[in-house]
């Protein structure tokens, strides 16, 4: 039940229920005002929803069209409507070995990054939240500052570092997807450590003191108490690490070039856009398939996703 309590703390949907019975009494004189405020709220929410959902919906619409329909004369057809729906684009992409390679690379890179991130972030957060050592508070602040260092500041020195390392060791490091496994944790570990510190610090001290008096080692305290109790935070951090590595665009664009090493976002942009020829049906299908994994995770784990989002700036 620890799951539901932590989520409720971040998104307390249920709190208005408590004041529910009182509401009619308090607002009776204002009830007509409230009714209008409510109508306007719905009206504007619908408008904003149209704005916010227009691009993904248009992706879906375009992905179902034939290329003949996409390039039909806009004077006679409505681009917002599919006259002859077809799954042609999906079939073509999902049977193309190139696209499947991008997808495979993306999944391997994202999943491995999540695992590496967790292996680094959980012990570090545990030690920073509970077992103080010399400089640990400075380090906690430093972790947060690292999270604020953008990838656009680091890609040029990292590029040069890879080049130097390649010249020293003779191992080719450019154009290899596994190099991304070394680079991506710089984006995910600081944030994950930061929110895990927050979740670990909120666990009552009595819990782990009791365990230690009973003779548990630090390792047992971590695996038997901290990880189970802070599971919601762990899930939020995992989702964050996955979506960030899945969406990362700059590093793979700078460090990988050939078609068998590209990850999905870069692959779609560099292989489906050839010169000035845009095959929009396939590009939109690819973009939608590229957006699908984060969207599916979001659809099923929305509360954890939002908890992680809000925890980043509020915990600590």
């Amino acid at each position: 039940m620890a799951v539901s309590t932590t989520i409720d703390k971040v998104a307390p949907d249920k709190t208005p229920d408590k004041t529910g019975p009182r509401r009619p009494v308090v607002y009776r004189s204002l009830s007509s005002d409230r009714k209008w405020a409510l109508r306007w709220s719905y009206f504007f929410l619908v408008l904003f929803c149209i704005f916010f959902l227009m691009p993904p919906v248009y992706m879906l619409i375009t992905s179902l069209k034939t290329s003949a329909e996409i390039s039909a004369d806009p004077a006679t057809t409505n681009p917002w409507w599919v006259y002859k729906p077809t799954l042609e684009n999906y079939v073509e992409l999902l049977t193309s070995s190139q696209f499947l390679t991008f997808f495979k690379n993306s999944i391997i890179v994202a999943v491995s990054t999540v695992i590496i991130t967790m292996l680094i972030a959980i012990p570090a957060a545990f030690s920073l939240a509970r077992m103080k050592f010399w400089g640990s508070t400075t380090l906690a602040t430093g972790v947060f500052l690292t999270y604020l260092v953008p990838d656009t500041l680091l890609f040029i020195p990292l590029f040069k570092m890879l080049a130097t390392l390649r010249d020293w060791t003779g191992i080719e490091l450019f154009n290899r997807w596994y190099v991304l496994l070394v680079i991506y944790p710089t984006l995910t570990v600081p944030f994950c450590t930061w929110i895990m510190i927050g979740y670990f610090a909120s666990i009552p001290k009595e819990l782990d003191e009791a365990a230690i008096i009973d003779g548990a080692t630090w390792w047992q305290t971590l695996t038997k108490i901290f990880i189970p109790v802070a599971l919601p935070g762990l899930i939020a951090a995992t989702i964050f690490a996955f979506t960030v590595s899945w969406a990362q665009f700059l590093y793979p664009l700078a460090f990988t070039t050939s078609n068998d090493q590209l990850v999905l976002p870069v692959g779609i942009i560099s292989s489906l856009i050839k010169g000035d020829v845009f095959n929009w049906g396939q590009i939109m299908t690819g973009a939608l398939l590229g957006a699908a994994p984060p969207l599916i995770i979001y659809a099923f784990l929305m509360d954890y996703y939002i908890a992680g989002l809000t925890a980043g700036a509020t915990k600590g």
Partner: peptide
């Protein structure tokens, strides 16, 4: 309303380009 934030920006920008 949170969907735009979830889609990888490189992918959603392609939709805007179109």
């Amino acid at each position: 309303l949170l969907i735009p934030w979830v889609i990888p920006p490189a992918m959603s920008t392609l939709a805007w380009l179109w």
